[in-house]
C-alpha cells in the first residue's frame, strides 16, 4: 500500500503536468487536430490515477483524506479536474483545459509538500459533519476557481476586442457572452455550495450560539457576500459583463486571502 501511494505521489503530478502541457499546445497551436484527443486521454488518465490515490490514501489512513492542508488541496484539485472532464462532455470547453488544469496541477504539486501521514484527527473533529462540511467547502472553492478563471478570460477577451487584437488567444477563446454566462453559473454554484458548507458548520459547531466567530469565518462570509452581491446585481440590475467579472475576481481574491487569516472556528 505504501509503495503504491509513494508511486502515485510522483505519478499524479507528472500526469497532470503532461496533460497541462498538451492542453497548452492545444490552445496555442494553430492546428489543434493532433492534441485534442491526447489532451482528453491525458486528463482521463490523470483523474483515474488521482482517484486511485485518494481511495488508497483513505484506506491507509482509515478516514476520509480531508484532515490536512495537503489532503484538502488534493481533494480540491480532484474537484477541478473532474469539473474540466465533465465540462468537456457538456460544453465546448476543451480549449479552456489549460486554464483549469494549470491551478489543478499547482494544487497537486503543492499537496505533496503539505502531506502529514502521521497526522491524527483531534477527537472533536471526528464527526461525519467534518466530511460534509469540508467536501462542500472544497466544492465551493472549485466552483469559485472556475468562475474566476472564466471571469479573467472574459476580461482578457474584452480587452482584445476593444484593442482589436485578433491574435491566437482571441481566436481560441469562446465568445464573450458565453464566458460571462459560464462565469455567472459557476459563481452561483459556488455560492450555493458555500451556503451549504456554512449551514453544516453552524449546525455542527455553533448550534447554540453564533458568538465567538473567528476572523476566518467572518472573512468567509465576506467572500460569500461578494459573490452573492455579484449574482444579485446581475439579476436585479443587469450588471453583467465586465463589472460582474471584476466582482467575481474580487470575491476570489478575498477567498484566497481568507486562507492566510488565522485558524478555523472549531478551535474557538
Amino acid at each position: 500500500m505504501e509503495i503504491l501511494i509513494l508511486g502515485l505521489k510522483f505519478l499524479v503530478p507528472l500526469a497532470y503536468l503532461a496533460t497541462t502541457v498538451t492542453y497548452a499546445k492545444l490552445f496555442f497551436a494553430p492546428d489543434e487536430g493532433p492534441f485534442a484527443r491526447k489532451a482528453r486521454t491525458g486528463l482521463g488518465i490523470s483523474l483515474a490515477l488521482h482517484t486511485l490515490m485518494l481511495v488508497t490514501l483513505g484506506a491507509q489512513l482509515k478516514r476520509c483524506p480531508l484532515g490536512t492542508i495537503g489532503e484538502g488541496l488534493l481533494f480540491l484539485s480532484w474537484f477541478l479536474g473532474t469539473i474540466q472532464f465533465l465540462s468537456e462532455w457538456l460544453a465546448d470547453y476543451r480549449r479552456l483545459g489549460l486554464f483549469t488544469l494549470l491551478p489543478t496541477t499547482l494544487c497537486v504539486v503543492a499537496a505533496a509538500f503539505f502531506q502529514r501521514p502521521d497526522f491524527a484527527l483531534p477527537p472533536e473533529l471526528r464527526s461525519s459533519f467534518l466530511v460534509f462540511h469540508i467536501v462542500a467547502s472544497l466544492a465551493s472553492y472549485a466552483c469559485f476557481s472556475m468562475a474566476s478563471i472564466l471571469a479573467a478570460l472574459y476580461l482578457v477577451l474584452h480587452r482584445k476586442l476593444k484593442n482589436k487584437n485578433f491574435d491566437i488567444t482571441f481566436r481560441k477563446l469562446p465568445p464573450l457572452d458565453k464566458l460571462d454566462k459560464l462565469s455567472a453559473t459557476w459563481s452561483f454554484l459556488g455560492s450555493t455550495t458555500m451556503v451549504v458548507a456554512s449551514v453544516i458548520g453552524i449546525v455542527w459547531v455553533r448550534k447554540d450560539s453564533l458568538a465567538g466567530m473567528t476572523m476566518r469565518e467572518l472573512a468567509i462570509y465576506l467572500v460569500l457576500m461578494v459573490f452573492l452581491t455579484a449574482g444579485a446585481a446581475r439579476r436585479l440590475f443587469g450588471m453583467r459583463g465586465r463589472v460582474h467579472a471584476i466582482l467575481v475576481l474580487v470575491g476570489f481574491a478575498v477567498l484566497l486571502l481568507t486562507n492566510l487569516i488565522g485558524a478555523h472556528g472549531f478551535r474557538g
Binding site: L161, F170, P174, P175, L176, D177, K178
Partner: peptide, 9 residues
C-alpha cells in the same frame, strides 16, 4: 458575422 459571434455567441 464571425466578430459578432465572438461577442454575442
Amino acid at each position: 458575422v464571425e466578430l459578432a459571434k465572438k461577442v454575442l455567441g
